[in-house]
Amino acid sequence: MSDEFEPKIIALVCNWCTYTAADLAGTSRLAYSANVRIIRLMCTGMIDPKYILKALLDGADGVFIGGCHPGDCHYINGNLKAKKRISGISKIVEQFGFDPERLRLRWIGASEGPEFQRNMNEFFESIKALGSTPVRDRMIL
């Protein structure tokens, strides 16, 4: 059991939609992996590329980014700005051997608790299929 690969996942989620959905999933007792670490940010538009790099270089097997559906962003369009930036950072990390599948951006609305759970489970499974991050057990200088 302990040998089985349990992906470590960082979920960067916006306060208004996806975090609310995650919270809803929690109160509705919709279970997903305990290895998902949710980090609440105000908006996905706040996500600095550094955060994603930091997570990947520190050994996250996957980085999930959850924002509001387009048009629902509390800050009008932070989610779309995030999408643009993340596409770039994805292009970069994949060239260093990080499968772009390790970085996933999804829109999950505030009332979509089940949607959050489904996304977490799907991401967890897809990372599990990908296997451990290339960073694992390496000393990243």
Binding site: K83, K84, G88
Partner: peptide, 14 residues
């Protein structure tokens, strides 16, 4: 510069 231009609407984060 690319980070100042973004699609106004897109259906999913995929």
């Amino acid at each position: 510069i690319p980070y100042l231009v973004f699609e106004e609407e897109s259906s999913n984060g995929k």
